[in-house]
Write a protein that binds this DNA or RNA. Structure first.
Lengths: 216, 216
DNA sequence: TTAAAAAGTTAGACTATTCTAACAAATTAA
DNA sequence: TTAATTTGTTAGAATAGTCTAACTTTTTAA
């Protein structure tokens, strides 16, 4: 069994390694808000536990065992987020911090009940895939709001960003998951889009924001 | 803020002190499965934090601050248990261990939503009162199954025992919260009772068991 | 291609939590 | 009321996780 701290390291290593496969001590230290020597000694520990492959001055890689554990933690996090939004009706911008704690709860039953209650979901409220209990991930094609054809109407399905400031921004604009919007106009100049919202209001989003919103 | 460990100490001190008001190092050590010197040094720590009043060779008492914290933890635990049973439909015998973990989640919103969803309950599935967010406890008169008049029918409302072995025992007997039973016979000799269960089966319970089941 | 910058490592220290061994105080029982 | 038992305390050590200070390697850039 891993400690809560170890789980957080594993999760971060997985997240950082998605792109490159290898993670550096400095990256991990920054992500976890921890100094490099602390990361260094934790890597030695995780290496003896066969969770990471680690050679001095080389990068950090999760072993198969480590990946499995990472996927299990991510599954718990994303199930928890979806549960908090769908069942407990909390705002999508406030569930991240709670899920961060719930993901460490040690109880298969707790998570399998969530899974059942949510009807075995494949994606969390941010549009991220939820690994199944074997660690398998289903991927899908997602359309960003910034790619929607002018004049078309779509439903906001998820957002691709966990940052509170981003979620607060959407809230302030009056956008919610499930809202139906029509793309009135896309500016060629800067890629910003004007939406017609169900509330009758027109909403202007920059490209930077629109590309992080997924629609169906 | 208290650490998870400190919260567990505070909760146990509160539980043990309910009867006598004072708790001894040895009791606490046994309850927490920890050696006496460890308890001793934690008491010193909690004393500097003004959570307990502690004088060497005297007992341990929670301060007002400590009581407040204990009630807050107990509230979270009991809300979580009720939530797990009522909303997530987990068995009453399996929720204790999960609630033990959920009680440490730091999020007012999480608990206030549970409270709302459960319609501001006053008692948990074991019949224990749930303190409100100010730490206030509502008490009620409870009738034990062992005190029910022969021939009367009642509904199982709660049980006064958290032990897994006890809850497993009831499960094995086929008894669930909400079941309606009729007291057919009480043996004067040993106080054991024979019940007529809705399932048509007759169930025999010892006095020791029947006095820990509350009915309405 | 060498010198500055960035990244990584070691050594040593600190806090939280726990333990064992040894001793001290309080309680109980003969 | 003293001796045995129970309870409580101190001292010292261990582990997990983190830090700062002081290097060492690698990388980057002049």
């Amino acid at each position: 069994m891993d400690s809560l701290t170890e789980e957080n390291y594993i999760k971060s290593i997985y997240a950082l390694s998605l792109a490159t496969g290898e993670v550096f001590v400095s990256e991990l230290a920054k992500k976890l808000n921890i100094k490099q020597p602390s990361v260094n000694s934790m890597m030695k520990r995780l290496a003896t536990k066969k969770v990471v492959a680690y050679a001095p001055y080389k990068g950090i890689r999760l072993t198969e065992k480590g990946k499995k554990e990472a996927l299990s933690i991510i599954r718990r996090h994303r199930l928890a987020e979806l549960f908090l939004v769908k069942v407990m009706e909390l705002g999508w911008e406030e569930v991240h911090d709670i899920a961060e704690q719930l993901e460490h709860v040690d109880s298969k039953r707790f998570y399998s009940r969530m899974d059942e209650m949510l009807n075995f979901p494949k994606f969390d409220p941010h549009g991220e895939p939820i690994p199944d209990s074997n660690g398998k991930i289903y991927t899908q094609k997602r359309t960003a709001l910034s790619d929607l054809v002018e004049g078309l109407t779509a439903t906001i399905a998820a957002v691709g960003e966990d940052e509170k400031s981003f979620l607060d921004h959407l809230n302030a604009k009056g956008l919610q998951i499930g809202d139906t919007v029509t793309l009135k106009k896309r500016e060629l100049f800067d890629g910003s889009v004007t939406l017609q919202h169900k509330s009758k209001k027109e909403i202007l989003l920059t490209h930077q924001v629109a590309e992080r919103i997924w629609v169906e």
